[in-house]
Design a protein around this nucleic acid. Structure first.
Length: 574
RNA sequence: CGGAGCGUAGCUCAGCUUGGUAGAGCACUUGCUUUGGGAGCAAGACGUCGCAGGUUCAAAUCCUGUCGCUCCGACCA
Protein backbone atom coordinates (compact mmCIF):
# COMPACT_ATOMS: atom_id res chain seq x y z
CA UNK A 1 0.00 0.00 0.00
CA UNK A 2 1.25 3.43 -0.93
CA UNK A 3 0.97 6.13 1.68
CA UNK A 4 -0.17 8.61 -0.98
CA UNK A 5 -3.15 6.37 -1.78
CA UNK A 6 -4.04 5.26 1.74
CA UNK A 7 -6.33 8.17 2.69
CA UNK A 8 -4.07 8.83 5.62
CA UNK A 9 -4.16 12.27 7.15
CA UNK A 10 -2.07 12.93 10.22
CA UNK A 11 -2.52 15.95 12.42
CA UNK A 12 0.42 17.86 13.70
CA UNK A 13 -1.36 19.11 16.80
CA UNK A 14 -3.86 17.26 18.96
CA UNK A 15 -7.42 18.47 18.36
CA UNK A 16 -8.78 20.47 21.28
CA UNK A 17 -11.59 18.01 21.83
CA UNK A 18 -9.23 15.20 22.81
CA UNK A 19 -8.23 15.13 26.44
CA UNK A 20 -6.49 11.83 26.92
CA UNK A 21 -3.44 10.50 25.10
CA UNK A 22 -5.08 7.61 23.29
CA UNK A 23 -7.86 9.85 22.02
CA UNK A 24 -5.36 12.42 20.79
CA UNK A 25 -3.26 9.79 19.04
CA UNK A 26 -6.34 8.15 17.54
CA UNK A 27 -7.16 11.45 15.84
CA UNK A 28 -3.62 12.61 15.16
CA UNK A 29 -2.55 9.37 13.53
CA UNK A 30 -5.53 9.47 11.19
CA UNK A 31 -7.33 6.41 12.57
CA UNK A 32 -10.72 7.97 13.28
CA UNK A 33 -12.70 11.17 12.92
CA UNK A 34 -15.59 12.39 15.01
CA UNK A 35 -18.97 12.89 13.38
CA UNK A 36 -20.77 13.94 16.56
CA UNK A 37 -20.40 13.30 20.27
CA UNK A 38 -19.63 9.63 20.78
CA UNK A 39 -20.04 8.84 17.09
CA UNK A 40 -16.94 8.19 15.00
CA UNK A 41 -15.88 7.28 11.51
CA UNK A 42 -13.13 4.69 11.49
CA UNK A 43 -10.71 5.77 8.78
CA UNK A 44 -8.95 3.16 6.63
CA UNK A 45 -5.94 2.78 8.92
CA UNK A 46 -8.14 2.47 11.98
CA UNK A 47 -10.36 -0.03 10.23
CA UNK A 48 -7.34 -2.19 9.45
CA UNK A 49 -6.57 -2.38 13.16
CA UNK A 50 -10.19 -3.18 13.89
CA UNK A 51 -10.12 -6.01 11.37
CA UNK A 52 -7.09 -7.53 13.08
CA UNK A 53 -8.79 -7.37 16.46
CA UNK A 54 -11.91 -8.93 14.96
CA UNK A 55 -9.92 -11.69 13.32
CA UNK A 56 -8.27 -12.63 16.60
CA UNK A 57 -11.61 -12.53 18.41
CA UNK A 58 -13.16 -14.81 15.77
CA UNK A 59 -10.27 -17.26 15.95
CA UNK A 60 -10.55 -17.54 19.71
CA UNK A 61 -14.33 -17.66 19.81
CA UNK A 62 -14.36 -20.38 17.18
CA UNK A 63 -11.64 -22.25 19.04
CA UNK A 64 -13.84 -22.11 22.13
CA UNK A 65 -16.69 -23.67 20.17
CA UNK A 66 -18.82 -20.59 19.68
CA UNK A 67 -20.71 -20.09 16.40
CA UNK A 68 -20.95 -16.77 14.62
CA UNK A 69 -24.18 -15.20 13.41
CA UNK A 70 -25.38 -11.67 12.80
CA UNK A 71 -28.43 -10.22 14.47
CA UNK A 72 -30.21 -7.01 13.53
CA UNK A 73 -29.73 -3.62 15.13
CA UNK A 74 -33.35 -2.70 14.36
CA UNK A 75 -35.49 -4.42 16.95
CA UNK A 76 -39.20 -4.18 17.68
CA UNK A 77 -39.87 -2.61 21.06
CA UNK A 78 -42.51 -5.27 21.54
CA UNK A 79 -39.75 -7.87 21.88
CA UNK A 80 -38.16 -5.88 24.68
CA UNK A 81 -41.48 -5.46 26.44
CA UNK A 82 -41.74 -9.22 26.69
CA UNK A 83 -38.35 -9.33 28.38
CA UNK A 84 -37.43 -8.74 32.01
CA UNK A 85 -35.65 -5.39 31.85
CA UNK A 86 -37.45 -3.14 29.39
CA UNK A 87 -37.75 -0.18 31.75
CA UNK A 88 -34.11 -0.22 32.77
CA UNK A 89 -32.84 -0.74 29.21
CA UNK A 90 -34.96 2.16 27.94
CA UNK A 91 -32.70 4.52 29.83
CA UNK A 92 -30.05 4.07 27.14
CA UNK A 93 -32.18 3.23 24.12
CA UNK A 94 -32.42 5.05 20.84
CA UNK A 95 -35.65 4.58 18.99
CA UNK A 96 -36.10 4.66 15.24
CA UNK A 97 -39.09 5.29 13.08
CA UNK A 98 -39.87 5.56 9.43
CA UNK A 99 -39.73 9.13 8.17
CA UNK A 100 -42.64 8.61 5.81
CA UNK A 101 -44.66 5.69 7.07
CA UNK A 102 -46.34 5.86 10.43
CA UNK A 103 -46.44 2.50 12.06
CA UNK A 104 -47.91 1.83 15.41
CA UNK A 105 -45.04 -0.42 16.41
CA UNK A 106 -42.02 1.26 17.92
CA UNK A 107 -38.58 0.17 16.78
CA UNK A 108 -35.47 0.48 18.92
CA UNK A 109 -31.82 0.43 17.96
CA UNK A 110 -30.47 -2.53 19.85
CA UNK A 111 -28.26 -1.66 22.83
CA UNK A 112 -27.53 -5.38 23.24
CA UNK A 113 -28.99 -8.68 22.09
CA UNK A 114 -30.09 -10.94 24.94
CA UNK A 115 -33.72 -10.45 23.92
CA UNK A 116 -33.16 -11.13 20.24
CA UNK A 117 -30.93 -14.15 20.72
CA UNK A 118 -33.11 -15.74 23.38
CA UNK A 119 -36.20 -15.26 21.25
CA UNK A 120 -34.32 -16.81 18.34
CA UNK A 121 -33.12 -19.79 20.33
CA UNK A 122 -36.59 -20.23 21.80
CA UNK A 123 -37.91 -20.74 18.29
CA UNK A 124 -35.31 -23.41 17.50
CA UNK A 125 -34.58 -25.16 20.77
CA UNK A 126 -36.49 -28.35 21.48
CA UNK A 127 -34.12 -30.95 22.84
CA UNK A 128 -31.18 -31.25 25.18
CA UNK A 129 -29.39 -32.77 22.18
CA UNK A 130 -29.05 -29.25 20.73
CA UNK A 131 -27.10 -28.08 23.77
CA UNK A 132 -24.63 -26.75 24.65
CA UNK A 133 -24.84 -23.85 22.24
CA UNK A 134 -22.84 -20.64 22.22
CA UNK A 135 -23.66 -18.03 19.58
CA UNK A 136 -21.73 -14.87 18.96
CA UNK A 137 -21.62 -11.87 16.68
CA UNK A 138 -19.55 -8.78 16.07
CA UNK A 139 -22.07 -6.04 15.59
CA UNK A 140 -22.83 -2.38 16.13
CA UNK A 141 -24.55 -1.39 19.35
CA UNK A 142 -26.43 1.81 19.99
CA UNK A 143 -26.58 3.27 23.47
CA UNK A 144 -27.63 6.76 24.36
CA UNK A 145 -24.88 7.19 26.90
CA UNK A 146 -25.47 9.94 29.43
CA UNK A 147 -22.03 11.20 28.69
CA UNK A 148 -20.04 9.84 25.79
CA UNK A 149 -16.37 10.51 26.34
CA UNK A 150 -12.78 9.95 25.40
CA UNK A 151 -13.32 9.13 21.75
CA UNK A 152 -13.99 5.45 21.23
CA UNK A 153 -13.80 4.70 24.95
CA UNK A 154 -17.47 5.44 25.51
CA UNK A 155 -19.42 5.97 22.35
CA UNK A 156 -23.09 6.06 21.50
CA UNK A 157 -22.52 3.80 18.55
CA UNK A 158 -19.80 1.20 18.93
CA UNK A 159 -18.75 -2.24 17.86
CA UNK A 160 -19.21 -5.08 20.28
CA UNK A 161 -18.52 -8.75 20.20
CA UNK A 162 -21.36 -10.34 22.11
CA UNK A 163 -21.83 -14.02 22.80
CA UNK A 164 -24.59 -16.02 24.44
CA UNK A 165 -24.39 -19.52 25.82
CA UNK A 166 -27.23 -21.97 26.37
CA UNK A 167 -26.84 -25.06 28.55
CA UNK A 168 -28.88 -27.83 30.12
CA UNK A 169 -28.08 -26.99 33.69
CA UNK A 170 -26.20 -24.67 35.95
CA UNK A 171 -23.00 -26.73 36.10
CA UNK A 172 -22.72 -26.98 32.36
CA UNK A 173 -23.47 -23.27 32.11
CA UNK A 174 -20.52 -22.69 34.40
CA UNK A 175 -18.35 -24.73 32.05
CA UNK A 176 -19.47 -22.59 29.11
CA UNK A 177 -18.74 -19.51 31.18
CA UNK A 178 -15.28 -20.82 31.93
CA UNK A 179 -14.64 -21.50 28.25
CA UNK A 180 -15.50 -17.90 27.41
CA UNK A 181 -13.44 -16.63 30.32
CA UNK A 182 -10.44 -18.52 28.99
CA UNK A 183 -11.06 -17.34 25.44
CA UNK A 184 -11.19 -13.77 26.67
CA UNK A 185 -7.87 -14.12 28.44
CA UNK A 186 -6.32 -15.36 25.21
CA UNK A 187 -7.93 -12.65 23.10
CA UNK A 188 -6.70 -9.80 25.26
CA UNK A 189 -3.21 -11.25 25.44
CA UNK A 190 -3.07 -11.71 21.67
CA UNK A 191 -4.20 -8.19 20.83
CA UNK A 192 -1.56 -6.82 23.20
CA UNK A 193 -3.80 -5.70 26.06
CA UNK A 194 -2.57 -6.37 29.57
CA UNK A 195 -5.99 -7.19 30.95
CA UNK A 196 -7.10 -9.16 33.97
CA UNK A 197 -10.41 -10.29 35.43
CA UNK A 198 -12.11 -8.75 38.44
CA UNK A 199 -15.23 -9.94 40.23
CA UNK A 200 -18.08 -7.80 39.06
CA UNK A 201 -21.63 -6.84 39.81
CA UNK A 202 -24.34 -8.31 37.61
CA UNK A 203 -26.30 -5.06 37.59
CA UNK A 204 -29.32 -4.70 35.37
CA UNK A 205 -28.20 -7.74 33.39
CA UNK A 206 -29.17 -9.98 36.27
CA UNK A 207 -27.67 -13.38 36.84
CA UNK A 208 -25.62 -15.14 39.41
CA UNK A 209 -22.02 -14.07 38.92
CA UNK A 210 -19.81 -12.16 36.63
CA UNK A 211 -16.30 -10.97 35.86
CA UNK A 212 -15.11 -7.80 34.22
CA UNK A 213 -11.94 -7.84 32.16
CA UNK A 214 -10.13 -4.59 32.76
CA UNK A 215 -6.91 -2.89 31.80
CA UNK A 216 -5.42 -0.63 34.45
CA UNK A 217 -5.49 2.97 33.32
CA UNK A 218 -5.49 6.26 35.18
CA UNK A 219 -8.21 7.66 32.93
CA UNK A 220 -10.34 4.51 33.03
CA UNK A 221 -13.98 4.87 33.97
CA UNK A 222 -14.22 1.80 36.18
CA UNK A 223 -12.88 1.64 39.68
CA UNK A 224 -11.41 -1.59 40.90
CA UNK A 225 -10.21 -2.85 44.26
CA UNK A 226 -7.18 -5.12 44.27
CA UNK A 227 -4.83 -6.63 46.82
CA UNK A 228 -1.12 -6.24 46.18
CA UNK A 229 -0.58 -9.98 45.76
CA UNK A 230 -3.35 -10.26 43.17
CA UNK A 231 -5.31 -12.73 45.29
CA UNK A 232 -8.37 -10.49 45.21
CA UNK A 233 -9.61 -8.18 42.48
CA UNK A 234 -13.13 -6.78 42.25
CA UNK A 235 -15.02 -3.97 40.66
CA UNK A 236 -15.77 -1.26 43.20
CA UNK A 237 -19.50 -2.04 42.97
CA UNK A 238 -18.78 -5.53 44.18
CA UNK A 239 -15.74 -5.07 46.41
CA UNK A 240 -16.03 -6.14 50.04
CA UNK A 241 -13.76 -4.93 52.80
CA UNK A 242 -13.44 -4.60 56.54
CA UNK A 243 -14.28 -1.08 57.62
CA UNK A 244 -11.70 0.57 59.80
CA UNK A 245 -13.26 0.16 63.27
CA UNK A 246 -14.31 3.10 65.40
CA UNK A 247 -11.65 3.81 67.99
CA UNK A 248 -14.18 3.39 70.79
CA UNK A 249 -17.76 2.12 71.02
CA UNK A 250 -18.96 3.54 74.34
CA UNK A 251 -21.67 1.98 76.50
CA UNK A 252 -25.15 3.38 75.87
CA UNK A 253 -26.15 6.52 77.74
CA UNK A 254 -29.24 8.76 77.34
CA UNK A 255 -29.24 10.74 74.11
CA UNK A 256 -29.11 14.48 74.03
CA UNK A 257 -30.32 17.06 71.49
CA UNK A 258 -27.96 19.96 70.86
CA UNK A 259 -28.08 23.03 68.62
CA UNK A 260 -26.05 22.95 65.41
CA UNK A 261 -26.96 26.12 63.53
CA UNK A 262 -26.01 26.11 59.85
CA UNK A 263 -24.48 22.65 60.09
CA UNK A 264 -25.66 20.51 57.18
CA UNK A 265 -22.71 18.30 56.32
CA UNK A 266 -20.65 15.60 57.93
CA UNK A 267 -17.61 17.82 57.62
CA UNK A 268 -19.24 20.81 59.35
CA UNK A 269 -20.31 18.65 62.24
CA UNK A 270 -16.75 17.41 62.57
CA UNK A 271 -15.16 20.84 62.40
CA UNK A 272 -17.62 22.88 64.44
CA UNK A 273 -18.67 20.32 67.03
CA UNK A 274 -15.78 17.90 67.13
CA UNK A 275 -17.82 14.86 66.12
CA UNK A 276 -15.59 12.42 64.21
CA UNK A 277 -17.13 11.29 60.91
CA UNK A 278 -17.03 7.68 62.03
CA UNK A 279 -19.27 8.58 65.00
CA UNK A 280 -21.98 10.09 62.81
CA UNK A 281 -24.95 8.32 61.26
CA UNK A 282 -25.58 9.48 57.72
CA UNK A 283 -29.22 9.30 56.65
CA UNK A 284 -29.81 9.04 52.90
CA UNK A 285 -33.32 9.32 51.50
CA UNK A 286 -33.92 7.36 48.32
CA UNK A 287 -36.86 6.61 46.13
CA UNK A 288 -36.54 2.89 45.53
CA UNK A 289 -39.05 1.35 43.16
CA UNK A 290 -41.29 4.41 43.72
CA UNK A 291 -41.23 4.08 47.50
CA UNK A 292 -39.25 6.17 50.00
CA UNK A 293 -36.48 4.23 51.72
CA UNK A 294 -33.79 5.36 54.16
CA UNK A 295 -30.22 4.10 53.96
CA UNK A 296 -28.07 4.61 57.04
CA UNK A 297 -24.30 4.64 56.96
CA UNK A 298 -21.43 5.72 59.12
CA UNK A 299 -20.43 9.30 58.37
CA UNK A 300 -17.09 8.31 56.91
CA UNK A 301 -18.62 5.75 54.55
CA UNK A 302 -20.04 6.01 51.06
CA UNK A 303 -23.22 4.34 49.83
CA UNK A 304 -22.72 1.78 47.09
CA UNK A 305 -25.79 1.93 44.86
CA UNK A 306 -24.92 -1.34 43.16
CA UNK A 307 -25.14 -3.09 46.53
CA UNK A 308 -28.49 -1.41 47.12
CA UNK A 309 -29.73 -2.77 43.81
CA UNK A 310 -28.33 -6.16 44.72
CA UNK A 311 -30.52 -5.98 47.85
CA UNK A 312 -33.54 -6.46 45.63
CA UNK A 313 -34.48 -3.05 44.27
CA UNK A 314 -34.76 -2.56 40.55
CA UNK A 315 -34.65 1.23 40.28
CA UNK A 316 -33.36 3.73 42.80
CA UNK A 317 -32.63 7.43 42.88
CA UNK A 318 -31.84 9.94 45.61
CA UNK A 319 -34.92 11.84 46.74
CA UNK A 320 -35.03 15.51 45.78
CA UNK A 321 -34.75 18.11 48.55
CA UNK A 322 -38.45 18.89 48.08
CA UNK A 323 -39.40 15.24 48.47
CA UNK A 324 -37.23 14.99 51.56
CA UNK A 325 -38.91 17.97 53.21
CA UNK A 326 -42.37 16.61 52.47
CA UNK A 327 -41.53 13.10 53.73
CA UNK A 328 -39.25 13.86 56.67
CA UNK A 329 -40.57 17.29 57.61
CA UNK A 330 -37.05 18.60 57.54
CA UNK A 331 -34.55 19.54 54.84
CA UNK A 332 -31.46 17.41 54.14
CA UNK A 333 -28.65 18.16 56.54
CA UNK A 334 -30.45 17.43 59.79
CA UNK A 335 -32.02 14.05 59.09
CA UNK A 336 -32.17 11.09 61.40
CA UNK A 337 -33.94 7.73 61.38
CA UNK A 338 -35.23 8.31 64.89
CA UNK A 339 -38.09 6.34 66.39
CA UNK A 340 -40.90 6.86 65.62
CA UNK A 341 -40.31 7.10 61.93
CA UNK A 342 -42.41 9.40 59.71
CA UNK A 343 -45.20 7.28 58.28
CA UNK A 344 -44.16 8.07 54.71
CA UNK A 345 -40.95 6.06 55.06
CA UNK A 346 -41.54 2.46 54.12
CA UNK A 347 -38.23 0.86 54.93
CA UNK A 348 -34.90 1.56 56.63
CA UNK A 349 -31.78 -0.36 55.77
CA UNK A 350 -28.61 0.25 57.76
CA UNK A 351 -25.08 -0.68 56.89
CA UNK A 352 -23.57 -3.57 58.86
CA UNK A 353 -21.08 -1.19 60.44
CA UNK A 354 -23.86 0.47 62.44
CA UNK A 355 -24.93 -2.74 64.17
CA UNK A 356 -24.76 -2.34 67.96
CA UNK A 357 -23.11 1.05 67.79
CA UNK A 358 -23.64 3.53 70.61
CA UNK A 359 -22.54 7.10 71.19
CA UNK A 360 -23.38 8.08 67.62
CA UNK A 361 -24.56 11.48 66.44
CA UNK A 362 -27.31 11.99 63.87
CA UNK A 363 -29.69 14.70 62.68
CA UNK A 364 -32.65 15.56 64.93
CA UNK A 365 -35.12 15.85 62.02
CA UNK A 366 -35.23 19.50 62.98
CA UNK A 367 -33.29 22.15 61.16
CA UNK A 368 -30.33 23.34 63.23
CA UNK A 369 -30.29 20.45 65.69
CA UNK A 370 -28.50 17.11 65.97
CA UNK A 371 -28.67 14.41 68.60
CA UNK A 372 -25.64 12.85 70.30
CA UNK A 373 -25.22 9.62 72.28
CA UNK A 374 -27.50 7.79 69.90
CA UNK A 375 -27.64 4.06 70.44
CA UNK A 376 -28.45 2.62 67.04
CA UNK A 377 -30.44 -0.43 68.23
CA UNK A 378 -32.21 1.58 70.93
CA UNK A 379 -32.98 4.90 69.20
CA UNK A 380 -33.04 4.35 65.44
CA UNK A 381 -35.63 2.54 63.40
CA UNK A 382 -33.76 -0.12 61.41
CA UNK A 383 -35.59 -2.82 59.49
CA UNK A 384 -32.54 -4.60 58.21
CA UNK A 385 -28.73 -4.53 58.27
CA UNK A 386 -26.81 -5.12 55.04
CA UNK A 387 -23.46 -4.35 53.45
CA UNK A 388 -24.20 -1.03 51.76
CA UNK A 389 -20.81 0.64 51.75
CA UNK A 390 -18.27 1.26 49.07
CA UNK A 391 -14.87 -0.21 49.88
CA UNK A 392 -12.26 2.43 50.63
CA UNK A 393 -8.60 2.50 49.72
CA UNK A 394 -6.48 0.95 52.43
CA UNK A 395 -9.22 -1.14 54.05
CA UNK A 396 -8.47 -4.83 54.57
CA UNK A 397 -9.98 -7.60 52.53
CA UNK A 398 -12.12 -9.73 54.88
CA UNK A 399 -10.52 -13.13 54.29
CA UNK A 400 -7.00 -12.41 53.06
CA UNK A 401 -6.54 -9.47 55.46
CA UNK A 402 -4.53 -7.71 52.82
CA UNK A 403 -5.00 -3.99 52.18
CA UNK A 404 -7.13 -3.04 49.19
CA UNK A 405 -5.93 -0.54 46.66
CA UNK A 406 -8.61 1.35 44.75
CA UNK A 407 -7.52 2.25 41.23
CA UNK A 408 -8.96 3.02 37.85
CA UNK A 409 -9.31 0.76 34.84
CA UNK A 410 -10.94 0.45 31.46
CA UNK A 411 -13.52 -2.30 31.16
CA UNK A 412 -12.79 -4.09 27.90
CA UNK A 413 -14.83 -7.23 28.45
CA UNK A 414 -17.51 -8.61 30.70
CA UNK A 415 -18.75 -12.14 31.24
CA UNK A 416 -22.00 -12.98 33.03
CA UNK A 417 -23.56 -16.17 34.19
CA UNK A 418 -27.18 -15.34 33.64
CA UNK A 419 -29.21 -18.32 34.78
CA UNK A 420 -32.72 -18.63 33.36
CA UNK A 421 -33.93 -15.04 33.59
CA UNK A 422 -34.17 -14.56 29.84
CA UNK A 423 -34.88 -18.13 28.80
CA UNK A 424 -37.94 -18.17 31.08
CA UNK A 425 -39.16 -14.83 29.75
CA UNK A 426 -38.86 -15.92 26.11
CA UNK A 427 -39.62 -19.60 26.52
CA UNK A 428 -36.20 -20.89 25.50
CA UNK A 429 -36.97 -24.37 26.81
CA UNK A 430 -35.97 -27.89 25.91
CA UNK A 431 -36.96 -31.43 26.79
CA UNK A 432 -34.28 -32.91 29.00
CA UNK A 433 -33.27 -36.58 29.15
CA UNK A 434 -35.87 -37.11 31.85
CA UNK A 435 -38.64 -35.86 29.57
CA UNK A 436 -39.06 -32.66 31.55
CA UNK A 437 -39.33 -29.26 29.88
CA UNK A 438 -36.64 -26.96 31.29
CA UNK A 439 -35.44 -23.46 30.57
CA UNK A 440 -31.91 -23.18 29.17
CA UNK A 441 -29.20 -21.89 31.50
CA UNK A 442 -27.65 -18.89 29.88
CA UNK A 443 -24.51 -16.85 29.97
CA UNK A 444 -23.64 -13.69 28.09
CA UNK A 445 -20.26 -12.30 27.18
CA UNK A 446 -19.20 -8.98 25.70
CA UNK A 447 -16.06 -7.37 24.38
CA UNK A 448 -15.97 -3.70 23.47
CA UNK A 449 -14.15 -4.07 20.17
CA UNK A 450 -13.76 -0.38 19.32
CA UNK A 451 -12.95 0.37 22.93
CA UNK A 452 -10.20 -2.26 22.79
CA UNK A 453 -8.73 -0.46 19.81
CA UNK A 454 -8.29 2.71 21.80
CA UNK A 455 -7.28 0.88 24.98
CA UNK A 456 -4.41 -0.66 23.02
CA UNK A 457 -3.22 2.83 22.10
CA UNK A 458 -3.58 3.89 25.72
CA UNK A 459 -1.28 1.04 26.73
CA UNK A 460 1.15 1.27 23.81
CA UNK A 461 2.47 4.72 23.07
CA UNK A 462 5.34 7.04 23.84
CA UNK A 463 5.89 10.79 23.44
CA UNK A 464 6.29 10.38 19.66
CA UNK A 465 3.18 8.36 18.95
CA UNK A 466 1.63 4.92 18.91
CA UNK A 467 3.63 1.68 19.19
CA UNK A 468 1.32 -0.97 17.77
CA UNK A 469 1.60 -4.58 18.86
CA UNK A 470 2.54 -6.51 15.72
CA UNK A 471 -0.64 -8.59 15.93
CA UNK A 472 -2.96 -5.66 15.32
CA UNK A 473 -0.84 -2.99 13.60
CA UNK A 474 -2.55 -1.45 10.55
CA UNK A 475 0.51 -2.45 8.55
CA UNK A 476 3.45 -4.41 9.83
CA UNK A 477 6.18 -2.48 8.04
CA UNK A 478 6.67 1.19 7.22
CA UNK A 479 8.98 1.59 4.23
CA UNK A 480 10.25 5.15 4.07
CA UNK A 481 11.37 6.08 0.60
CA UNK A 482 13.68 9.03 1.06
CA UNK A 483 14.95 9.45 -2.49
CA UNK A 484 12.60 9.41 -5.40
CA UNK A 485 15.36 7.90 -7.55
CA UNK A 486 15.02 4.68 -5.53
CA UNK A 487 11.35 4.33 -6.36
CA UNK A 488 11.80 1.07 -8.26
CA UNK A 489 13.78 -0.52 -5.48
CA UNK A 490 11.01 0.38 -3.03
CA UNK A 491 8.50 -1.11 -5.44
CA UNK A 492 10.46 -4.37 -5.54
CA UNK A 493 10.81 -4.55 -1.76
CA UNK A 494 7.10 -3.96 -1.35
CA UNK A 495 6.28 -6.77 -3.76
CA UNK A 496 8.74 -9.16 -2.14
CA UNK A 497 7.46 -8.46 1.36
CA UNK A 498 3.83 -8.74 0.33
CA UNK A 499 4.50 -12.07 -1.35
CA UNK A 500 5.62 -13.27 2.09
CA UNK A 501 2.28 -12.15 3.52
CA UNK A 502 3.79 -9.09 5.15
CA UNK A 503 1.80 -5.85 5.01
CA UNK A 504 3.76 -2.76 4.02
CA UNK A 505 3.00 0.92 3.94
CA UNK A 506 5.35 2.62 1.51
CA UNK A 507 5.77 6.31 2.26
CA UNK A 508 6.10 7.50 -1.32
CA UNK A 509 5.05 11.08 -0.64
CA UNK A 510 7.05 14.01 -1.94
CA UNK A 511 7.85 15.02 1.62
CA UNK A 512 11.11 15.75 3.32
CA UNK A 513 12.61 12.92 5.37
CA UNK A 514 11.83 14.59 8.69
CA UNK A 515 8.11 14.59 7.95
CA UNK A 516 8.19 10.90 7.05
CA UNK A 517 10.06 9.97 10.22
CA UNK A 518 7.64 11.95 12.39
CA UNK A 519 4.60 10.44 10.72
CA UNK A 520 6.07 6.95 10.94
CA UNK A 521 6.57 7.37 14.68
CA UNK A 522 3.07 8.79 15.06
CA UNK A 523 1.37 5.96 13.18
CA UNK A 524 3.54 3.47 15.05
CA UNK A 525 3.99 0.53 12.68
CA UNK A 526 6.16 -2.02 14.50
CA UNK A 527 8.95 -2.19 11.88
CA UNK A 528 10.50 0.64 9.93
CA UNK A 529 12.60 0.30 6.81
CA UNK A 530 14.43 3.39 5.61
CA UNK A 531 15.55 3.41 2.01
CA UNK A 532 17.73 6.30 0.92
CA UNK A 533 20.98 7.11 -0.85
CA UNK A 534 22.66 7.46 2.51
CA UNK A 535 21.77 4.01 3.84
CA UNK A 536 22.38 2.44 0.46
CA UNK A 537 25.89 3.88 0.26
CA UNK A 538 26.72 2.46 3.67
CA UNK A 539 25.49 -1.00 2.74
CA UNK A 540 21.72 -1.34 2.47
CA UNK A 541 18.40 -0.55 4.05
CA UNK A 542 18.01 0.64 7.62
CA UNK A 543 15.81 -1.59 9.79
CA UNK A 544 14.43 -0.25 13.06
CA UNK A 545 11.85 -1.37 15.59
CA UNK A 546 9.33 1.29 16.54
CA UNK A 547 9.68 0.21 20.13
CA UNK A 548 13.48 0.34 20.13
CA UNK A 549 16.23 2.86 19.70
CA UNK A 550 18.82 0.96 17.66
CA UNK A 551 18.71 0.41 13.94
CA UNK A 552 20.63 -2.06 11.79
CA UNK A 553 21.74 -1.95 8.17
CA UNK A 554 20.42 -4.83 6.10
CA UNK A 555 21.71 -5.59 2.59
CA UNK A 556 18.87 -5.07 0.13
CA UNK A 557 18.58 -8.70 -0.95
CA UNK A 558 18.32 -9.86 2.67
CA UNK A 559 15.57 -7.44 3.63
CA UNK A 560 12.58 -9.80 3.12
CA UNK A 561 14.03 -12.63 5.17
CA UNK A 562 15.30 -10.29 7.88
CA UNK A 563 11.94 -8.57 8.16
CA UNK A 564 10.15 -11.88 8.33
CA UNK A 565 12.50 -13.05 11.04
CA UNK A 566 12.08 -9.97 13.20
CA UNK A 567 8.30 -9.92 12.70
CA UNK A 568 8.00 -13.52 13.78
CA UNK A 569 9.98 -12.69 16.90
CA UNK A 570 7.62 -9.82 17.64
CA UNK A 571 4.53 -11.94 17.06
CA UNK A 572 5.65 -14.83 19.21
CA UNK A 573 6.98 -12.60 21.98
CA UNK A 574 3.58 -11.04 22.61
C1' C B 1 -29.73 15.46 34.73
C1' G B 2 -26.55 19.37 37.70
C1' G B 3 -22.00 22.40 37.40
C1' A B 4 -17.94 24.64 34.59
C1' G B 5 -15.61 25.96 30.08
C1' C B 6 -15.39 26.53 24.81
C1' G B 7 -17.65 27.53 19.57
C1' U B 8 -13.50 32.74 14.64
C1' A B 9 -9.99 29.24 7.88
C1' G B 10 -9.02 21.90 7.24
C1' C B 11 -5.96 21.98 12.45
C1' U B 12 -4.01 24.92 16.82
C1' C B 13 -5.39 29.61 18.36
C1' A B 14 -5.27 35.42 18.72
C1' G B 15 -8.81 39.45 18.28
C1' C B 16 -13.88 40.45 22.40
C1' U B 17 -12.27 43.85 28.33
C1' U B 18 -12.92 49.54 25.71
C1' G B 19 -18.23 47.99 19.16
C1' G B 20 -15.52 50.90 13.65
C1' U B 21 -12.55 47.13 6.73
C1' A B 22 -11.46 39.30 9.42
C1' G B 23 -6.00 37.84 11.77
C1' A B 24 -1.32 34.51 12.89
C1' G B 25 1.15 29.72 12.72
C1' C B 26 0.53 24.92 10.58
C1' A B 27 -1.93 22.46 6.44
C1' C B 28 -3.45 23.48 0.95
C1' U B 29 -2.06 25.56 -4.58
C1' U B 30 2.06 27.53 -7.86
C1' G B 31 7.28 28.73 -8.56
C1' C B 32 12.42 28.72 -6.99
C1' U B 33 15.82 26.88 -3.41
C1' U B 34 16.34 22.86 0.17
C1' U B 35 16.45 17.26 1.08
C1' G B 36 18.15 11.46 7.05
C1' G B 37 13.98 13.86 12.31
C1' G B 38 7.65 18.22 11.22
C1' A B 39 12.55 23.46 5.69
C1' G B 40 13.21 28.80 3.46
C1' C B 41 11.57 32.71 0.24
C1' A B 42 7.74 34.58 -2.92
C1' A B 43 2.86 34.54 -4.79
C1' G B 44 -2.09 32.51 -4.05
C1' A B 45 -6.67 30.14 -2.48
C1' C B 46 -9.55 29.23 1.87
C1' G B 47 -14.49 32.68 6.70
C1' U B 48 -22.40 33.52 6.33
C1' C B 49 -16.80 34.74 13.36
C1' G B 50 -22.13 27.94 15.61
C1' C B 51 -27.42 29.67 14.84
C1' A B 52 -31.55 33.11 15.84
C1' G B 53 -33.20 37.51 17.80
C1' G B 54 -32.14 42.24 20.26
C1' U B 55 -29.30 47.00 21.32
C1' U B 56 -26.61 50.41 17.91
C1' C B 57 -25.27 54.83 12.60
C1' A B 58 -22.18 50.35 13.09
C1' A B 59 -21.75 43.73 16.41
C1' A B 60 -16.75 38.41 16.03
C1' U B 61 -16.96 42.08 20.15
C1' C B 62 -22.58 44.13 24.22
C1' C B 63 -27.60 41.61 25.70
C1' U B 64 -31.22 37.41 25.34
C1' G B 65 -32.31 32.80 23.61
C1' U B 66 -30.91 28.43 21.19
C1' C B 67 -27.84 24.52 19.21
C1' G B 68 -23.23 22.03 19.34
C1' C B 69 -18.61 20.43 21.68
C1' U B 70 -15.40 19.30 26.00
C1' C B 71 -14.47 18.46 31.09
C1' C B 72 -16.17 17.48 36.27
C1' G B 73 -20.09 15.47 39.03
C1' A B 74 -24.32 12.85 39.25
C1' C B 75 -24.57 9.45 46.98
C1' C B 76 -22.02 12.66 51.62
C1' A B 77 -27.79 14.33 55.23
Amino acid sequence: MKYSRAFLQTLREPPAEAEIKSHQLLLRAGLARKLSAGVYTLLPAGLRVLHHIERIIREEMNRAGAIELLMPALQPAELWKRGPRYDAARQVMFTAQSATRRTSEETVLGPTHEEVVTDLVASVLASYRQLPLTLYQIQTKFRDEIRPRFGLMRGREFLMKDAYSFDCDSDRATASYQAMYNAYSRIFRRIGLHAFAVEADTGVMGGSFSHEFVVPCAVGESEIATTDDGSYAAAIEKAVSLASPRPHNPPPVPFEKFPTPNVTTIEDLTIKHGVAACCQVKTLVYIADSRPVLFLLRGDHVLNEAKVLAAGFSQIRPATPEEIVSMMGCPPGSLGALKPLPSSITRVIADECLRDQHGMTTGANEEGFHIRNISVPRDLHVDEYRDLRTALDGELHPTTRRPLRISRAIEVGHVFKLGTKYSEAFGARFLDTDGQSKPAFMGCYGIGVTRCLQAIIEQHHDENGIIWPASVAPWQVALLLLDESLHEMAEQLETQLESLGITVLVDDRAERPGVKFKDADLLGLPLRLTLGEKSLNSGGVELKLRAGKESTLVPVQEVPTQVQLVLNQLLTAS
